[in-house]
């Protein structure tokens, strides 16, 4: 497990956290190199499609960060985002994603230290969980030979059993 280096897609708002990442860089604060940064105009821009897309393409974790409430460049973008993120996080977990895979933070452009600190925590938390298990698109060359038929599902009736067990 100690060998595992997680890949983390990091979506940062242009006005605050991206600035913080810059500041952390010029200030030579150490943080792990596992994060891949995507810059967006505002955390309100982030769509659930992007999160799922990150998992499809092999991300082990996702971290989204924007301005502190009240500091949004667009005045209210992050307030709207906050409601969306809460539903998104809970819905992802409802679908089976582990709580430590997806992270949110507010980091202003003056908080280079906080950026490095959260980056370390996010990477560590995903490292603990190990490689992503869910929402990964399968390898394309490993298609079934005949591809002629619906294959029987190994999980068949699992759902029914679980619900029945609970009812009992």
């Amino acid at each position: 497990m100690s060998e595992f280096e997680p890949k983390i897609i990091t979506i940062l708002c242009n006005w605050c956290t991206y600035g913080a990442a810059d500041l952390a860089g010029v200030s030579r604060f150490q943080y792990p190199p596992n994060i891949r940064v995507i810059r967006v105009p505002c955390s309100g821009r982030v769509s659930p499609k992007m999160i799922l897309s990150a998992f499809h393409n092999g991300a082990d974790g996702v971290w989204i960060s924007g301005c502190h409430p009240g500091d949004c460049h667009y005045i209210t973008g992050n307030y709207y985002a906050r409601r969306k993120f809460m539903l998104l996080k809970n819905f992802l977990e409802y679908n089976g994603i582990e709580p430590g895979r997806i992270h949110f933070s507010w980091i202003s452009s003056a908080e280079g230290v906080k950026f490095a600190e959260v980056a370390r925590d996010v990477v560590e938390s995903v490292r603990q969980l190990g490689p992503a298990k869910y929402f990964i698109k399968k390898e394309l060359d490993d298609n079934d030979l005949c591809s002629c038929l619906n294959k029987s599902n190994p999980d068949n009736n699992l759902a029914k059993n679980i619900l029945e067990e609970q009812a009992a």
């Binding site: 038929l149 619906n150 029987s152 029914k160």
Partner: peptide, 20 residues
């Protein structure tokens, strides 16, 4: 072999596993 098997509520045609 391919044949109708019940999968949840409905029948579907699929390749039959050994012994199925």
């Amino acid at each position: 072999l391919i044949g109708p098997v019940k999968d949840r509520e409905f029948h579907q045609f699929r390749e039959l596993a050994k012994g199925e």
